[in-house]
Design a protein around this nucleic acid. Structure first.
Length: 223
DNA sequence: TACTGATCATTC
DNA sequence: GAATGATCAGTA
């Protein structure tokens, strides 16, 4: 039984609020999906379960999870200190000049314009089925956050345009970084080089640093 | 312990 | 291969 897509943001928020405090086991039971024994072989399972519970479109296309209301869904793994345990994947990095746009038209900005964050307990000491879902909230970047994202994006994008991709590593970017995003280190995709556009390289993704998502979390907790 | 680079599953 | 969903695991 598929849950219909939410028609409004309020409807989505209500559904997400109903998940708060529930364990992953409870939600999996409700949706009649099995809990994986080993998370290593089910890395995206929690995200997929949340999509299932909330009626996300559930495609592998580069569009928002809730395309009718233009909201992106992100789960946020939280450790015992209440901090994000991992960085947050945003989207793949365009590596050819013709795929690169301005910040205003970038996939990063489009994806992060409206996000439903769902904190999920993610301490290794808690077995996967017993981990609980937290209080979800909808977020848009405030002017400071947008400026930080934009500055990092423009710096990294300029480097790609100049053919300096090989020089980029995860140390660049205060809040937004670029890291490999591939099946393995041997994966290849086309990329532009300083000579033109004939190079191949490992596919990359944009990620939000945990310090950034922690600030988002704090801004939205207790209000 | 935090962070970076590597990896896992699935769909189209 | 490229998009989605992410977490793993070695090392600084």
């Amino acid at each position: 039984m598929q849950i219909p897509a939410p028609r409004t943001e309020a409807e989505l928020l209500n559904r997400a609020a109903a998940l708060a405090g529930k364990s992953l086991w409870q939600l999996a039971e409700t949706r009649q999906v099995p809990v994986p024994a080993r998370q290593k072989q089910a890395k995206g399972w929690i995200g997929a379960l949340m999509e299932n519970c909330l009626g996300a479109t559930g495609s592998s296309l580069p569009v928002p999870d809730f395309r009718e209301i233009q909201v992106e869904l992100k789960t946020l793994p939280i450790n015992h200190l209440g901090k994000p345990r991992e960085s947050t994947y945003v989207c793949t990095v365009p590596l050819t000049r013709e795929a690169i746009t301005s910040w205003d038209h970038s996939v990063v900005r489009l994806k992060l314009t409206r996000v439903l964050w769902i904190p999920v307990e993610a301490d290794p000491s808690i077995p996967l089925p017993r981990r609980r879902v937290g209080n979800a909230f909808i977020w848009s970047p405030d002017p400071d956050e947008e400026q930080q994202l934009r500055a990092d994006w423009e710096e990294l994008t300029e480097m790609i345009c100049l053919g300096e991709l090989d020089y980029i590593n995860a140390r660049f970017g205060e809040v937004l970084q670029i890291r490999p995003k591939a099946a393995n280190a041997r994966a290849r995709t086309r990329a532009c080089t300083d000579e033109g556009e004939w190079g191949t390289t490992v596919p990359r993704g944009f990620y939000l640093r945990p310090t950034f998502t922690y600030r988002i979390l704090q801004r939205h907790s207790g209000c």
